[in-house]
């Protein structure tokens, strides 16, 4: 009898490594400061988006393109409640509110659209981004007459620490969800939804709740990101590109392992920050080529390379992956 997923076997070493990494990250502003802190904040933001995407779409097989919508809702909540004219509520409270707002949007959309399968679901979620953008645009033009909004300035270190906290919360949720009864139900839905339903899984509830949960972290990150952007309008807040990036980064990093999406997001964000400033033209091209190569030759993503390399180094003793 084996139920490895429900046992705490093998938690220790990965847990220890994570803790060391976390402490290193947390002391980053003290040791390096400045530009590095800004860069790592960007990496954390992409990692949150990617891990949140994998949290739902990975096991369930429902490809969501709603990331930009959830992120944008967070950004807008940030801009509304943390204007440069003086914040309405404390930053952390707004972060939670931004997360909740995105979750509520996800609950509504999920209840309506999670009966759609495959490409229809993907298209519908993307439509959500367009819809919210257009409605906001109309509102800002004809009702509020505000072209753009200035957001309260927050120092880089604070932004970094709040982003780090959201990232840790996302990772912990991802980790424990995968091992939970709920995670098993989500996985069974991805494998055969009908069989799951006939085995007692309330498939609608599991799907909608996980979708809302994943939206929470994206919305929370959006609030923090608003303070980094300092000026937003509907187009800045609802950036279509951010619906596709998490998918690409997840495929790039590999979704079989828990750290795959994080590695994918980190490499991508680093490339973006360095290449985009120095060689803006080649940046997307390079990324596109790398992605195609990964999809064609590395079905388990970049992190899928690790066991392969390890096997080569250790002479084929660790054949199981």
């Amino acid at each position: 009898m084996d139920i490895t997923r429900f046992k705490s076997k093998g938690f220790f070493i990965p847990g220890l490594i994570s803790l060391v990494l976390l402490i290193l990250l947390a002391t980053l502003p003290l040791s390096l400061g400045g530009y590095t802190v800004v860069l790592v904040t960007t990496i954390l933001m992409y990692a949150i988006l990617t891990v949140s995407w994998v949290l739902f779409s990975g096991p369930s097989g429902y490809m969501s393109l709603a990331s930009a919508a959830f992120f944008g809702v967070g950004i807008y909540i940030g801009a509304l409640l943390l204007p440069n004219t003086g914040q309405v509520l404390p930053l952390l409270v707004v972060v939670v509110l931004g997360g909740l707002a995105s979750s509520i949007v996800a609950l509504g959309v999920g209840a309506l659209t999670l009966r759609l399968r495959g490409i229809y679901f993907a298209i519908f979620t993307f439509g959500l981004v367009v819809l919210i953008l257009e409605v906001l645009n109309w509102w800002e033009h004809t009702v509020s007459h505000i072209r753009g909004r200035f957001v309260m300035v927050v120092d880089n270190e604070t932004i970094f620490y709040v982003m780090l906290a959201i990232f840790v919360a996302t990772m912990l949720t991802f980790f424990f969800l995968r091992r939970s009864k709920f995670g098993l139900a989500l996985q069974s839905i991805g494998q055969n939804e009908e069989a799951a339903a006939h085995s007692g899984v309330n498939v609608t509830m599991v799907k909608v709740l996980t979708f809302a949960l994943s939206a929470f972290f994206v919305g929370a990150a959006g609030v923090v990101w608003a303070t980094r952007l300092t000026y937003i309008d509907p187009y800045i807040a609802f950036n279509f590109f951010l619906s596709f990036l998490p998918v690409l980064m997840a495929i790039f990093g590999g979704i079989g392992q828990i750290y795959g999406p994080v590695v994918g997001a980190a490499i991508f964000a680093y490339l973006q920050e360095t290449l985009q400033t120095e060689f803006p033209e080649v940046y997307m091209l390079t990324f596109g080529i790398v992605l195609v190569v990964v999809i064609l030759y590395l079905p388990n993503g970049i992190v899928g390379l690790i066991p392969k390399l390890w096997r080569r180094i250790s002479g084929g003793q660790h054949a199981n992956t």
Binding site: D2, I3, R5, A185, Q187, S188, Q191, A195, G200
Partner: peptide, 14 residues
């Protein structure tokens, strides 16, 4: 209709 990528044990456990 089974959960093809899940171990047999977990199919039943579900």
């Amino acid at each position: 209709k089974i959960f093809a990528n899940m171990p047999v044990m977990q199919n039943v456990l579900l």
